[in-house]
Amino acid sequence: MDLLIDSCRAALILLASGDEELMKIVFCSLRVSGAATVIAAILGLPLGLLIAFTVFPGKRLTLTVLNTLLAMPTVVIGLLVYAFISRRGILGFLDMLYTQEAMIVGQVVLIVPVIATMVIAAISRLDRRYQATALTLGADRLQMAWMVVVEARYAVIAAIIAAFGRVIAEIGISMMLGGNAKGFTRTMTTAMALEYDKGEFVLAVALGMVLLGLAFALNLLFQLFQGRVASDAL
C-alpha cells in the first residue's frame, strides 16, 4: 500500500513539474491516436452510411464480419499489419515498421469497424421519415445522406469519441508496430508497460493518471452526446 501511495505522490509531483519525457509520451499518444481517429472517421463514416443505406446481397454477413472485428484483439491486428509492412511483407518497401505511421495504420484498422458499426446503428435508430422527407424534397442520395448524418450528429460524434477512447488505451498495436522507441513511438500505454517491467512505478503511475483523466474527460463528452441522443429521441 505504501508503494502505491508513495508512487502516487511522486507521480503528482512529476505531473505538476511538467516533466519533459512525460509530456513527450503524452503528446505522442495524442498525436498518433488523434490522427488514427480522424482517418478512421473519414473512412468509417461513409462506410457505415453506405452499408446502412444500401441493400445488397451479403449485407447480413458484412454486418456480422464488422461486429466480429469489434472483438479483434489488438495483438492480432498488430500481427496482421506487421505481416504487410515488415521487410518481407508486400508493403515492406515503404519502410514503415516501428514508426508512428505504422501505429496509425494499425489503430485505423482497429477502429474503422467501431465507427462504421456505431454509425450503422445510429442511422438504423433514426426515424425513416427523415430519408423519405429529404428525398421527396428533391435531395439526391448524397444530400439525403448528409441530412441524415446531420440529424444523427450526436450519435455520430459519440461514435468518434468512443473510437478515440479505444485507440488511446490500446497497447498491442503500439508495441508491435511502434516498437516503444523513446521519443518517437513511445506512447502512454507502452511506456507504462516498460516502466512496470523496470520496476519504476512513478512514471507509470503518472501516465496512468493522465490516461485515466483523459478517459474520464472522454466519457464525460460521450455521456453528453449520448444524453443529447436520448433527449432527441424523447
Partner: peptide, 11 residues
C-alpha cells in the same frame, strides 16, 4: 412533393 400523414421536420 409528398407531405406525410405525420410529417417530420428537420431539427
Amino acid at each position: 412533393v409528398l407531405v406525410d400523414q405525420y410529417p417530420i421536420l428537420f431539427t
